[in-house]
Amino acid sequence: MNKHCNIIIAGAGGIAEAAGLLLMEWSAVPPTIFIGNRTLSKAQKVARWIEEGTIKPCSVTAFHLPEEGLTEEMKEILGQGNVLLDCLPGRLAPKIARLAKDFHMHYVNLTEYVAETTEIMELAKDATTGFVLQTGLAPGYINILANHLFQRFCSDYEVDNVDKLEFKVGALTDHAVSPHYYGFTWSPVGVATEYIKDTLVLRDFKKTRLPALSERASIIIDGITYEEDLTSGGAADLPDALAGKVSSLDYKTLRYPGHYAWVEEQLAGLRNTSEAIAALQQKMEALIPHNEDDRIILYAAVEGKDKDGTLHRREISKRILPQTIGRHKLRSIQITTAVCLLQSAQLLVESHCSGVVLQSQIDPKSFLNGNFIVPVFGKV
């Protein structure tokens, strides 16, 4: 941050840890941070972790954030906040967004959940503060990168529509073994959800809904073969923003070959319900280990014809590995997600936005070259 802010982080998981540490290490003016969680001891643990990890002067306060109701301590802390960073599970996002609105704070969240995002959009349409939604890695950075590719392509080739816009992300382990060819690097319930809920795409320039895991294909990125398939939530608002401009647009998740076939075996007989999500999550957690050695693979491409009818394709790929920040080593999924959250928070503080800000409304060049983004993703 370029000026002092009181920042409230809701949640005490890996992204909350990373966000707090990065705020201390990379802000021009270190903020005052409050960490809230329903289990106070977890919030206190994260606060200590940040204080022990930063090499800069630090102020982090833990507080109890119950699932229901407001304590006097909460009212006092929320009343001081400038920005609320929502690092809690997506099902809680509308509740946390309501707190941000009620206490006149900017709000930034990470969730890919579509229904909850729609609820917050309705809630925040008349807010006096800014609400940046779905601003992690995917949805988030990858959507802004894809929109950047689209805009540059149209400008350079003097066209206003393209044939394809593809964007893909994989949060993967360094190694993968049979039969599942996967290791958890982030939320199991998030993985189960994206494998089951429908996804929004563009086909023939029109927004449509397709089942998750219904368009599997192989792709080679930097010489390595991955499998890609449709998953829910990652397209953010680009199907709405680019309808009529892109013939085929979709977000796909990257996995090692063999993983999706294993998932289909687990899904046999399950229906598209909340119970199916829970059942898939339970099956995966019983058999798939969590793994700290991770990497992020991302890829975006635009394809279309110039004004003379010549077909062109532009591609960007990146591989992000763990990084040491201060005295702690952050996993790839932590740092890539957290810096997008923080860049969005800084955008709100510096631009004084109000109401909902979606991915397509963020200036790509400014965001992608922001001071939190560049040290992790590089310039574009």
Rank of each mutant, 00 (worst) to 15 (best):
T135L: 11
Y107H: 10
A138F: 10
T135S: 15
H104L: 09
T71Y: 02
V60F: 08
A43Q: 04
K45I: 06
A97G: 00
H106A: 01
G53W: 06
L110T: 01
I55L: 12
V114A: 07
D102T: 07
A138T: 11
V46R: 12
H104P: 08
V46I: 15
L85G: 01
L92R: 12
Q134I: 05
Q134D: 05
H104K: 14
N82D: 07
K95F: 05
G90N: 02
E76W: 06
A115F: 05
Q44W: 03
T61Q: 13
V114Q: 09
R91D: 06
L85C: 01
A127C: 13
G90A: 02
A62M: 13
T135C: 13
L145H: 04
L110S: 04
G69F: 03
T117G: 13
Q80C: 11
G136Q: 10
A146M: 02
G140D: 00
P94K: 00
P66H: 05
T118E: 15
G130L: 00
I96E: 10
V132G: 11
A124Q: 08
A146V: 02
M121P: 07
G130N: 00
F103M: 05
S59K: 14
D86E: 01
V83A: 00
E52V: 11
L133I: 02
E112K: 13
K56T: 08
L78N: 06
F103T: 03
T61V: 12
G81W: 06
H64P: 10
K75C: 08
T54F: 07
P94F: 00
L145C: 07
H104V: 09
A127T: 08
L70P: 14
I144V: 13
V108K: 01
I120V: 15
V46Y: 07
M74V: 09
A93S: 15
L65K: 00
Y141W: 08
V108H: 00
I144G: 06
L85A: 01
A47H: 08
L85N: 00
G130P: 01
A100Q: 02
I50Q: 10
E73L: 04
I77G: 00
L133Y: 02
L65P: 04
N143P: 09
V108L: 02
T71N: 04
G136D: 13
G69C: 04
H148F: 06
H64D: 13
E51F: 05
Q44V: 05
G90I: 01
E73G: 01
M121K: 14
K95M: 09
G53Y: 07
P139L: 02
I120P: 12
E73M: 05
G81S: 13
N109A: 06
I96A: 06
N147V: 03
V132Q: 12
Q44M: 12
E119W: 06
E119Q: 15
I96L: 09
T129F: 01
E112P: 15
L133R: 00
I142P: 14
E116K: 14
L84M: 03
D86S: 01
E52A: 13
T71A: 04
G136A: 11
P57C: 00
I55W: 04
V46W: 07
L133K: 02
I144P: 12
I50H: 13
W49G: 12
G140P: 01
V108M: 02
V46T: 15
L137K: 09
G130F: 00
K101D: 11
T129L: 01
G69Y: 04
V60L: 10
H106L: 03
E122N: 13
V114H: 05
